[in-house]
Amino acid sequence: MTELEARLRALRPRHRAFVPYLMAGASPRWLDHLDALVAAGADAIEVGLPFSDPMMDGPVIQEAALRALAAGTTLETVAHALGARDLGVPLIAMTYYNVLYHLGLERAATVLAAAGIGGAIVPDLPLEELAPWHEASAAAGLATVLLVAPSTPRERAAQLARASEGFVYATARMAVTGRSEEAGDAPRVVAAVRAAVDTPVYVGIGISTPAQAAAAVQFADGAIVGSTLVAQVLADDDPASLEIAASTFRAAIG
């Protein structure tokens, strides 16, 4: 079992996980934003590494990626900025395959692990293409988290759930990241995962209100909140404002 999974499993008896997402480098104060998310009670944080062509992201995270790239953010600048900082909660990198591929899979995995990152989510890397990256990530001790979608057939969901490390990312809707009013298919996706594994299952994609987060953790182990918080940072980069916004999700999740 990866270290990430051990840490996330350890949370489970106590409470449901709140996992916010932040785009590294989107604001010069992004390290302060990480602290704000921890202060608000995040159990783990997804750290976005910007890519020029984020095909699974909606307008908010696209904008954050553009700002981060304009500021010169790269995988290595993020790793360097994180240093050996211990935030007390696990960090999971979220990026697209070309960022890792271009740097070299082994080097990318090593650099991320050395920066204290415990896992990686690479949404454009499906199970069938996973092997080269998985070899590198496993050697570096990084967990590779896989997504299960509402369109995933039940048998494949089981296969993905077994291969996912750290936790299983259950996507609530057939959509890219962004805000939504719809409840989505999360209960069915989570049930398909649970039928196969005991790994923690977190729901993401389309959780934009504290009420949606509260609803998700009725059946899942945690909720991932991205665009709403990223939009908050893009509009107002005061870490205190982010902490307030994140706290409302924490309170709703319990």
Binding site: M55, M56, Y97, P123, D124, L125, P126, L127, E128, E129, L146, L147, V148, A149, P150, S151, T152, P153, R156, L160, T171, M174
Partner: peptide, 12 residues
Amino acid sequence: GGRFVPEALMPA
């Protein structure tokens, strides 16, 4: 070549 798409698009 290959097929590097998000899981949501794999079945399609």
